[in-house]
C-alpha cells in the first residue's frame, strides 16, 4: 500500500511539475485574485473600518474626557457651594450672636434704667419720710414740753395748793429748753 501511494504521489507530482505551491501555472490567477481581494480589504479598512472603529474609540475617549471635565467642574462648583454655605453659616452665627448681644444689652439698659427710677423714687420717698419724721418729732417734742408744763403745774398745784404762775413756769422751763 505504501509503495502504491508513493508511486502514485511520484506520478502525480511528476505530472504536475512538483510541489503545488511552486506550480507557476496558477500564479497569474492567484495574483489577480490576491490583488482584487487585498485591494478590497485595504479599501474597506481605510474607508470604513478606520473611520467607524477609530471614530468610535476617539468619540468614546472624547466623551470620557468631557465627562471627566464636567465632573471636575461640578466638583469645583460643589466645593464653591460648600464654601459659600460655610460662609453663610458663619455670617448667620455672627449675626445671631450680635442680635443676642444687642438684646442682652438693651435689656440690661432697660432694667438698669428702671432700677434707677425705682431707686430714685424710693430715695425720694425715704427723704420725705425722714422729713416727716423730723417734723413729727419736733411737734412731738413741742407737745412734750407743753404736756410736761401742764403736768408740772398740776403737780405743783396739788402740792402747794395753788397753781404756779406762767413766769414761774418759764423760769423752770428755760434750763430744760437750753439742754
Amino acid at each position: 500500500m505504501a509503495a502504491g501511494t508513493e508511486t502514485a504521489t511520484e506520478a502525480q507530482t511528476e505530472q504536475k511539475g512538483g510541489f503545488p505551491p511552486f506550480e507557476p501555472e496558477h500564479f497569474p490567477s492567484q495574483l489577480l485574485w490576491l490583488a482584487i481581494t487585498f485591494g478590497a480589504i485595504y479599501l474597506f479598512v481605510s474607508k470604513v473600518f478606520v473611520r467607524r472603529v477609530g471614530g468610535t474609540i476617539a468619540e468614546r475617549a472624547d466623551r470620557i474626557s468631557r465627562d471627566l471635565d464636567q465632573a471636575s467642574a461640578a466638583k469645583a462648583r460643589a466645593d464653591e457651594a460648600t464654601a459659600a454655605h460655610a460662609k453663610a453659616l458663619a455670617e448667620a452665627r455672627d449675626k445671631a450672636q450680635g442680635i443676642a448681644r444687642e438684646t442682652r444689652d438693651a435689656m440690661n439698659a432697660a432694667s438698669e434704667a428702671r432700677r434707677k427710677t425705682v431707686e430714685a423714687d424710693l430715695s425720694a420717698k425715704l427723704a420725705a419720710s425722714d422729713k416727716e419724721i423730723a417734723t413729727r418729732k419736733a411737734q412731738a417734742m413741742a407737745n412734750v414740753s407743753a404736756i410736761a408744763q401742764e403736768a408740772a403745774a398740776a403737780i405743783v398745784a396739788r402740792l402747794t395748793g395753788q397753781p404756779p404762775t406762767s413766769a414761774e413756769i418759764a423760769a423752770v422751763q428755760s434750763p430744760t429748753g437750753k439742754r
Binding site: P28, S29, L32, W33, L34, T37, I41, F44, V48, T56
Partner: peptide, 28 residues
C-alpha cells in the same frame, strides 16, 4: 499566455474578505 481561473484559493480569499467585512459591520 496567462490563464485566469477562479480557483478554490480565490474562493477562500473572498471568504476572508466577506468574514472581515461581515464581522466588522455586524460588530459595529
Amino acid at each position: 499566455a496567462y490563464h485566469f481561473i477562479f480557483t478554490n484559493s480565490a474562493a477562500y480569499m473572498f471568504l476572508c474578505v466577506a468574514i472581515l467585512v461581515g464581522v466588522t459591520l455586524y460588530a459595529m
